[in-house]
Design a protein around this nucleic acid. Structure first.
Lengths: 231, 231
DNA sequence: CAAGATAAACTGTGATCACAGATTACAGAT
DNA sequence: ATCTGTAATCTGTGATCACAGTTTATCTTG
């Protein structure tokens, strides 16, 4: 599931335990299965994953480096709790950067990119109408669609930045989604996705940027409206 | 609870050896004192810094997570070598993101921010005219000015992203600068800095974005013109 | 019953070791 | 002199231990 978020390593060499731990933790974080404020003990994770402390330490270090985890001295790592101020800050940055990625995708997408995006859009729309309460799959397919678009921008640098941003907002966005599945039923996401797809198909960068910006903004407004964000 | 007051001041707790190692390596990378392609052995660094392998491993993991270092399985970490394609990609992203940060700075800067930016601009300009061959200080003061501007945007998320970008381009930009000090004499940087300062002073986001974009683009064109980038 | 002192358990940090894969150096053969 | 196979060296990876600071539980005390 977290494959879209993690860079593929050559299959010639087997990934290290540190890599595997990083991927597993990333998947749990981005899909909202670890709540903000939750404590992550290195020893507990090591025991749960059947490895020693060393690979977990490396994974936690990497996650902390990208802001996905917070570590204090001699204290357990925690998923950052996001207050309203931080949430607005990261939302503003996401709108700019992911909007830019969508604009680049509209310019640089190939025919294969378009086909992949169309398939991902259809998959999300079908699930949204057929099984709107299937939150786990919705989270996964929404992520799949977004990153098909961002991959079509053909900018490795931008892709890594967006991945790091999603690792930060994942716990907030998707944990909320799991608690309020009706957010999907509003259909705002489906509309924005369709607009983004059209813009990318027509190679319209400004429209693509606007569509992604609206998608992000709508979700953010929904989160803020529930007032679950602390302080 | 007195604990709350103590915990609010994180500078009282001494940084870990891993943090210090990370900072030292970051400084060496961002200032171009470690060349692209150079190998960084954990044991060598540990011996040079007088620590064990453990803190160095953590620092290297964090740097690799942000793309500042590349690690292959069972091989020494290396400073990523940037070909023309990668360099253009990251330059394009820098123009968008750092331009956005400059625009935010023009909107959100306080009077104190402006004073700090003005001082940094003056420091760079003075050095540029008085001792144009003092590359080490020029690199440092250029960085100082840029990050005074980016800090004035008051967006922690954006600031971390820009820092990660500088860790990647530092080796290329500043190593080149050390080998070709005459780039400073062109005065393009000084002109762009002055434009950016004016725009931020006048709270003109578009002009601030354009000035920073021109500064980044000019330096990038200078690098590409020398054709030192491989492949 | 509530509040505070104290001990037990838990935490990350750092160092050290064993190990297997990768690199390098060196030898011999052609 | 050049190629080649092999041994020595170097590499990150992972596990384990000791240690000090933090957190939590327990017991005492008012």
């Amino acid at each position: 599931m977290p494959d879209a978020l993690v860079n593929e390593t050559p299959l010639l060499v087997p990934p290290t335990l540190g890599d595997q731990t990083f991927r597993q933790l990333s998947g749990l974080l981005i899909s909202g299965q670890i709540a903000p404020g939750e404590r992550l003990s290195i020893r507990e994770i090591a025991e749960a994953f059947g490895v020693s402390m060393t690979p977990v330490r490396e994974a936690v270090s990497r996650l902390a480096a990208t802001g996905a985890l917070e570590v204090s001295r001699n204290r357990a790592a925690t998923v950052p709790v996001m207050n309203v101020q931080k949430f607005r800050d990261i939302t503003r940055v996401r709108i700019e950067i992911e909007g830019f990625a969508a604009a680049l995708a509209a310019e640089n997408r190939t025919a294969e990119d378009l086909k992949a995006i169309e398939a991902a859009e259809r998959a999300f729309r079908d699930l949204s109408s057929d099984r709107p309460q299937d939150v786990s799959n919705a989270v996964q397919r929404n992520q799949q669609l977004h990153f098909e678009i961002y991959a079509a921008a053909h900018s490795p640098t931008l892709l890594e930045i967006v991945q790091a941003l999603w690792l930060r907002v994942g716990p907030v966005l998707n944990l909320d989604l799991r608690e309020n599945p009706d957010r999907l039923e509003s259909g705002i996401a489906t509309i924005c996705h369709a607009e983004a797809l059209d813009a990318i198909r027509n190679r319209d960068p400004d429209a693509a940027r606007a569509a992604i910006a609206r998608d992000i903004d709508a979700a953010a407004r929904f989160i803020e409206r529930q007032n679950k964000l602390p302080s």
